[in-house]
Amino acid sequence: MIPAAFDYAAPATLDEALRLLRRHRHAKVMAGGQSLLSLMKLRVASPSFIIDLRRIGRLAYVKEDKGAIAVGAMTTHAALAAAALVRRRLPALAQAAEAIGDLQVRNVGTIGGSLAHADPAADYPAVLLACDGVVVVRGPRGTRKVPAGQWFTGLFATALRSGEIVVEVQFPILPAGTRSAYVKMKHPASGFAVVGAAAVVRLGRDGRVADVRLAFTGAASHAFRARAAEEALRGQEPTEAAVRAAMARAPEGVDLLEDLVADAAYRAQLVRVYGARAVLAALG
């Protein structure tokens, strides 16, 4: 279908974009547009004004900055998946970027757009949570940093305030010996995660699991950390049996989504299986 009519501006600078956003209270900010345009075509969203960020070239970068991988909000999924720094230091992030949608979506869609949109089945949220990432936003009152754990507040809902734009995402560089992986069941048609699991694991000198962070997307109204499963795995030998046993606790206390592709019972199974497969993949 064809979207409803809308006004459009493509500012060249972030300041101009913020000014426009202040002036047009109901404007929608568009990064890659890979989620927004679909909603507009289906008439689920009919914004009257679009502020397109694509001319703001300075927001697309991947660099190492003060012990973190700093990713500009307008970095495309394809660029992120290909970035040597990410592939080397945070494989889970590269794997998530690579698993998004299809090639066309990855070439246009951006990390900032995805995190601002906060689709419950998007891939990045699991990695952001498992890595204790930070979302950097700029607004009328300057810049603020939102820790991953506070970013997702509900279905398509984030800590982003009116007038703010996501400018950067920071992923702390993992200590040596810490490994990560992201795995997902891809919806056959949409490519979204039916369930996606990100695991960050560090083994101690004794060979046991010294630290583990495990986060899921696609399974609930927003991405979540599976702390009970993390707790169960910590201090264990990293055997397949131990990992699977710990994952029995992964869906604990979570209100699982039910939709046409998976009911709650099956989603719980997917959380257990993908959780285990993510940890095992991280351990290599």
Binding site: V183, M185, K186, R277
Partner: peptide, 8 residues
């Protein structure tokens, strides 16, 4: 089964 999403 599941293609690339199988990850086993």
């Amino acid at each position: 089964p599941g293609g690339a999403g199988n990850v086993s």
